[in-house]
Nucleic acid binder design. Sequence first.
DNA 1: TTGAAAGCGCTAACAC
DNA 2: GTGTTAGCGCTTTCAA
Lengths: 325, 325
Amino acid sequence: MDEIASRAGVSKTTVSRVLNNIGNVKESTSDKVMKVIEEMNYQPNELARSLRINNTKTIGVIISNILNPFFTLLVRNIEDFAQENNYHVIICNTDEKKEKEVEYVRTLINRKVDGLIVATTGDIKNYQQLVGETPIVFVDRVPSEDDRKNFDVVLVDNEQASYKVTKHLIEAGYKNIGFITGNNISTTGYERLIGYRTALKEAKFPIKKELIKSGSFLGHDAYSLAQDLLDNTLCDAIFAANSLILKEVLDAVKDYNKTKERAIELISFDNEDWFDHSSINITSIKQPISDIAQKSLEILLDRIKGSTSNYKEIRYATELIIRTK
Amino acid sequence: MDEIASRAGVSKTTVSRVLNNIGNVKESTSDKVMKVIEEMNYQPNELARSLRINNTKTIGVIISNILNPFFTLLVRNIEDFAQENNYHVIICNTDEKKEKEVEYVRTLINRKVDGLIVATTGDIKNYQQLVGETPIVFVDRVPSEDDRKNFDVVLVDNEQASYKVTKHLIEAGYKNIGFITGNNISTTGYERLIGYRTALKEAKFPIKKELIKSGSFLGHDAYSLAQDLLDNTLCDAIFAANSLILKEVLDAVKDYNKTKERAIELISFDNEDWFDHSSINITSIKQPISDIAQKSLEILLDRIKGSTSNYKEIRYATELIIRTK
DNA sequence: TTGAAAGCGCTAACAC
DNA sequence: GTGTTAGCGCTTTCAA
C-alpha cells in the first residue's frame, strides 16, 4: 500500500479512501491512484483489514457430515443467501464428533468469523461460554437442555413428521414397523423416535423394544442393525431416521432377499432424488431445506447487526412423499 | 494479551512464548501464565497472529459444484488429509461460473490462504498472474493451454476411462451409443468425448453427430438432451459424462418408458452407491478419489514448503463397475 | 481534499 | 529467562 501511495504521489490514507470509496477524494487523485493499483495488480490484505475494522464478513457453518445430502444442500443454500448479503462462508465438518465441534467453534471464533451456524452433535455443555459474544444460530438440532433457551434454533418438526409417516404406515396395514435411528444424544434422533412411538400408541399398537434400534447418523452400523431386524423380528416396514441409514438398510434388504423373500416397506427421513429410481419402494420425508437455510441466516445476520430480541425456536413442517408402486 | 500479561505479572512476550511453546520459559512462570489464560478463557486472535507470521495454515479448495457427490467426497478426503497435517480448509463453490472462480481465487488469496486446490471451469486465461506467488494445484480439470505447463495437475485418465467403457458396450453388442457430456470448455468433457470416439473408430463404427450432445456438468439440460436422444435416434445405450447428468438421463428414460418401451443401457462417469439399487441398470466408472485428494494435497504442501521441482501432471487409472442384470 | 500518526493483537530481534 | 521495542498492512481520528 505504501508502494502504491508513493508511486501515485499521495499518502496511504488516500489510497485507503480510494479503495473503500469513502471520504472526499478529488476525481483526478482517485483516477491516478486507481491507475497505479491496476498497474501493480495490487490486492489488499484482508487479514490486516479485518484486524483493523474488527469484522470479516464471514460466517462459519459447522455441520456434522458433509457426505449427507441434507447438509450439502443446506450448505449450498446458506452459501447462496450469504453471497446475496455479501458474506462469505467457511464450512467445517465434525463427523458427529463433539471434540471436533468444540475445536472448530474455537478456531472459527479465533479467526473472527462474524457469526456461526451450527448443526451440533448435541452433548456440549455450556455453549454460552464456548462462543462468548459471537452470535450463533443452531440448525437441524437443538443444543443441550441448559443452552436451548439462550440461542436461536431453526429446524423441522421432527416429531410431527415421524408421527405422520408412522400413522401412514399403520393405516396402510403394516403391523411391525422397525425403526433405526442415529444416536439419542442429538435431539433429532430423540424427537423422531417420539413421533414414531406416539403414532403406535395412538393406534394401540405395542411398542416393541426389539423393533427399535439406534446406531449412528453417519449410517455406519445401520447395515447390521437392519440385518438384525430382518433376521430376528417380523418387521414388514423399516423406518430409517436419515437417508444415510436408509441406504444401509436398502443394502441389507437387498442382500437378505437374495436368499429369502420378504416384502419390506422402506421409509426415509430426508428425501433424495434417486429414491424415484430405487427398485425397492422408498417413502420419504422431505424437509424445506431452503427455508431452513434462509431463516437461519436471516436470524444470524440480525444478531450480527446487534439485534437483542428474544431467542426463537422456529420449526418448519415437512412434506411426506409417498411412493407406492 | 496485555491483560493476561499484567495479571500474570509478566510481559506479553512471555505470554506469547507460553502460548506457542517456544523459547525458554521457567516452568513456574509458564504455569502462572497458563492459569490466568484459563481463568480468563482467553482465545488468541488468529487474524493478528497470521498477519504477523505471514501464514494461515489454511488452504482454499475451489470446486465447481458442491452438490456433485464426486466433489463432496473429494473435499471430504482433502479435509481429512489436511487435518492430519494441521491445515484448515476453506471450501468455495463456483457453480461452473468463471466469474465466481476468479472472485474466489482473489478473495482466498487476499485472505492469505497458504495454497489453493482448484477444479477450474477451464476458460480462465493467465492463472499465473491471477494467483501470483500463491501455490496452486489443479484437480479434476486441466487449466487452459497456456497455463497447463506452469502448474501441477492431479486427475484421472478420462480418455482411457471413456474408451474402456465404450469398448465394453460395443463388445456387449450395443450399436447406437448416445453420449451426453457437460461443456467442452473444461478439459474433462473434451477428454471423455475423445475416449468415446476412439473406441467407436477402432470398432469401425460411424461417429454420428446426432448421438453426441453437450450441455452442462450441473446436469441442468440433460433431461431434454436425453429426451432428444430417445425420441430422435435409435440409441440403445446412453453414456453420461458425470453422475448429475446420469440422474437426469435416468429420469428421462423412466418417463419415456411410461408410454413406450425401450431397453436402454446406462453408463455414468463417476459412481454413486445408490446405483446398486437402481431399477434401471447403471454401469459406472469409479475414480480413485482418495488418491486424488491425497496426492493433490501432498504436492500442494510441498510447494508451500518451497519446493521448486518441475510441474507434474498426474493421471490415475479408473475402475469400471459393470452392473449387468 | 489530503496527510500524519496512532493502533488493531500479535511475534521476533535484540538487549539485559 | 524475561522484557523492550518495532512492525505485519491496514483504517481512522485529528489537524491542516
